[in-house]
Amino acid sequence: MALLEVKDLEIAVAAGGALLPVVRGVSFSVDENETLGIVGESGCGKSLTSLAIMGLLEGSQLRLTGGSISFDGRELNSLSPNERRAIMGDQMAMIFQEPMTSLNPVYRIGDQIVETIRQHRDMSKRQASDRAVELLDLVRIPEPARRIDSFPHQMSGGQRQRVMIAMALACDPKLLIADEPTTALDVTVQKEVLDLMADLQTRMGTAIVLISHDLGVIAETCDKVAVMYRGKIVEAASAAALFANISHPYTRGLLNSIPVVDHDVEWLEAIPGRVPTIDETLPGCAFHPRCSMAEIRCSAEDPAPHDVATGHTVRCHFAGKGTV
């Protein structure tokens, strides 16, 4: 059994007395030492999926309306808030896009790491502080013994993201969820942070869920990939299989939309139109209004997941019937 198993996850947003579905039947699994990439554009549900795993939907307009999330053999949704809090930050941890908003600006970073450690481990302040220095060293912050006394604003964006990673790793989590961890960073810093995450995974066997809008980042760092569009996984496979045989027209469209640095193209093959808003009801396949392959059937019938190869699943009526 995989470390994390998400099955038929459904999330809806409460708007004016109605529940509008935003994540629909999402299933995936992640194992130890494995990185799953979830890729998609704004509003596709990728971040909501990660928040649901962390149990962070409560208190908002969002409702978990179905499905199960099992972690290390335990069904998370059946746990009490206290039991869940004991797991969060300890066995599973999360890093966010903007480290400045996730770090408390009025506390020294060392104190913030110490707090996380002492929440979950029976350690003296002294021991926890030593551990904080170790962690900062691990994420390659220079002069860690001195930097634990820094405030977040005294660090650069890349350093702050490293501090977030250090904090997430404080209790050696089995699962790390990284939601756009490098989107706010410069490319050279992005590379350092991604290398660091890969390196830590090799050393500690952490399972990683990496959420990103950037197919390049996903292609370079992930073992498995799930492409989301309007709340559903439309294509999922190992990274090798996916990029060898792109089978969903949306995945193809995303890839064609990216201007590449290695050769010239005169015009980008942009996907026409826009993502429908969540209150627009759309019969059939959610992508059909923008799809160049769409036929009448696509506007009537929502395609079921179809295996084009072992472990390569595609939600498209044309899956496996020719190239996209």
Binding site: L194, F243, A244, V261
Partner: peptide, 15 residues
């Protein structure tokens, strides 16, 4: 050179 080499790339492997 450093900037260019830092960009993550997608290699479509032709099966």
């Amino acid at each position: 050179k450093r900037l260019l080499s830092a960009i993550p790339r997608i290699t479509e492997r032709v099966a």
